[in-house]
Design a protein around this nucleic acid. Sequence first.
DNA 1: ATAAATTCTTGACGAAGTTAATTAAATCTC
DNA 2: GAGATTTAATTAACTTCGTCAAGAATTTAT
Lengths: 396, 396
Amino acid sequence: MPRSAPARAPITSPAAATVFTTVLTEGPVSRVDVARRTGLSSAAVTKAARPFIEAGYLEELASEGRTAPGAGRPANPLAIRPDREYFVGVKITGDDLIGVVTDLRADVRASAHHALSSHDTGHVVRALADLVGELLSGTTPDGTGNLRDRAYCLGVAVSGDVDRASGVVRYSPFLGWRDVPLAELLDEATGLTTTLENDVKALAVAEQWFGEGVGASSFALVTVGTGIGSALVVHGDLVRGAHGVAGEIGHVPVADGGPSCHCGGQGCVEAIASTEAILTRARQVTGEATLSMDDAVTRARGGDEPLREVFAGAGHAIGLGLAALVNLFGPERVVVSGEGVATYDLFEEQIRRTFAVQAFGSAARCGLVIRPLPFEEWARGAAAVAVQSLFVSDSV
Amino acid sequence: MPRSAPARAPITSPAAATVFTTVLTEGPVSRVDVARRTGLSSAAVTKAARPFIEAGYLEELASEGRTAPGAGRPANPLAIRPDREYFVGVKITGDDLIGVVTDLRADVRASAHHALSSHDTGHVVRALADLVGELLSGTTPDGTGNLRDRAYCLGVAVSGDVDRASGVVRYSPFLGWRDVPLAELLDEATGLTTTLENDVKALAVAEQWFGEGVGASSFALVTVGTGIGSALVVHGDLVRGAHGVAGEIGHVPVADGGPSCHCGGQGCVEAIASTEAILTRARQVTGEATLSMDDAVTRARGGDEPLREVFAGAGHAIGLGLAALVNLFGPERVVVSGEGVATYDLFEEQIRRTFAVQAFGSAARCGLVIRPLPFEEWARGAAAVAVQSLFVSDSV
DNA sequence: ATAAATTCTTGACGAAGTTAATTAAATCTC
DNA sequence: GAGATTTAATTAACTTCGTCAAGAATTTAT
């Protein structure tokens, strides 16, 4: 049974959503500009924008920001009022809950953590409700009122197979959950309307609306860390996969006959470039069975050649995976990110080099952004999904 | 400057297109059934169907075909009248032109070939116009009139980078063409409205509308032969790639450190499993520098183990490429096809085996159809694109 | 025969967006 | 600096498309 999001923002028609999202993602724009970019008539933009202005979601800027000189009446750019409404985003990991409060632009305004002592559903729901309560106590970031009265939507990100439309966690190996109707439970426990999404997909949404993906009709987000995953946006829509599987770049086979992967395959990207795989290999080449990741990183940075090669090998595998992805999809941009922030300097060069060799023809023109990922970003992704729930139907 | 298709079929609204394509692809269906499947009201279906019936594109069947018993007025199924209009499809290869005439269902009703003695644009255009003239001479397959008066659309398939919207061949290595406005030239030379498409994408369209792809919102078509290519349909739309490159499964790297590919990469699927790569490898393992493909196939079938392994190796590489594709996309179905019809028995088992091992989780549930490809099928794909041009805007 | 079920048709209505005309606010020209 | 010109925003009439609700058509069930 699909659950539906609240429609507090006055979105009643496709055009209304188009206009609102254009202003949201492309900053202050005049009505004619919105019309030009969306193909709507300027009359339609005027009509669609009015309810948003009345409800306080949009405002009309003084015509100061004019750039184009020339004659004619100056434009009155429409701008988002980011403090009109706040959103809560929570990422559930195996060890803790990371929560943030964001504004309409998904900019983080407050954050809080919470350790997780058990994976029991009831326990997690209670802990999450506590965290939300903590985040929403006190006044709004803009100081004009009570935060709880200005936040209605909660986004939750979990790794695994998640059915966003029904709000059910189908399978999460990390938490050991199967078919948990988490959104429903959290609706009740928090009083907020909850949207549930896979963690990587949530991050992709954040990029699509508020990050590197803005303006690109197709792009990919790749996360590297404990696991290696990705999410793909094609024609503006997230690819979900007919059987719930998509974006498994971690299990693209890139080294025929390479190391065995826990998925049953051989030579998967994840079997070479995940944090665990790197550590295993580092211990092999050094012969030190108790080598820690931190030490391996330090020594590689210090110039230890065998260890540097382990990291380069991981970068190579990632580059091959990226080439596979880009040759198949041809996205406009690819963002590579992940929790192993500290070690990117050891990867990046090799990723780029391998990608450049293996990308086919003009696919190599695809913009490759390699960027560390602050941990809170995961929670921000969850909040972005909550923001998105305002103006995108659940069927997506 | 995008060219626009003729709208001879009375398609004036999204609903009209929806109704028509539903009947076209899902056989005779009653109006209520169409309504149920599309989410439209049955009133809308009635209204949308009328102009098509009046124009002779659809007809109402007698209520004989009833299956459901029970009470109530029997349904009057709507059916396509395939002979209402004919379409011409032509595939341009390096050596010849293959042309077909099809009906509305893209069923081939006549065909003709034409050798190509030069790749000069003018020559190809003239030869193609001749071929079309030949195909359209005489009476219609249903014997009710002059074929030329009942065919208005031409579809042309070429390998390479093709911009369908503008009708321009951006780059075709095979023909040595760059930026040839072929559709425009053929509009003039044939008097038909021409739609140009990449050959593999055209085949994918044929599958999507009239073949294995019917009813699947996402699927992939992979062709194996001289080259190895693929086309992907996601959310019902063909993936085109931001830079004109997509579906290059032939250049997915699957064997780290494997044979060099003409694309500059290493271990690409095409460097292992293309017809040429197989022959090269077969000559290596036998030590016979003049071994022919036919002989290699015969001896492999006869049980020659080293040669069988060459073919199995190719199947393995294809299976790895398929796994990459399926793990990233999660299509509902994959069709593997190609011109090397005769040798499928040597591939298939290994393709399936490798795919099964490397497909991640439930992605393995994806339906894998491996099927020979009659050569005319390429031309049929071109015709399917022409049919599609009736009811899909050029922007796709 | 009458009732019930199911399909199809019809016409009134409503939502959403377009075009064209109008008003508004600036610069440009002389 | 008055009027022309240019561009932006608004308004109002109109168009288009699809829904809804009522009813006609055609069957089976009792």
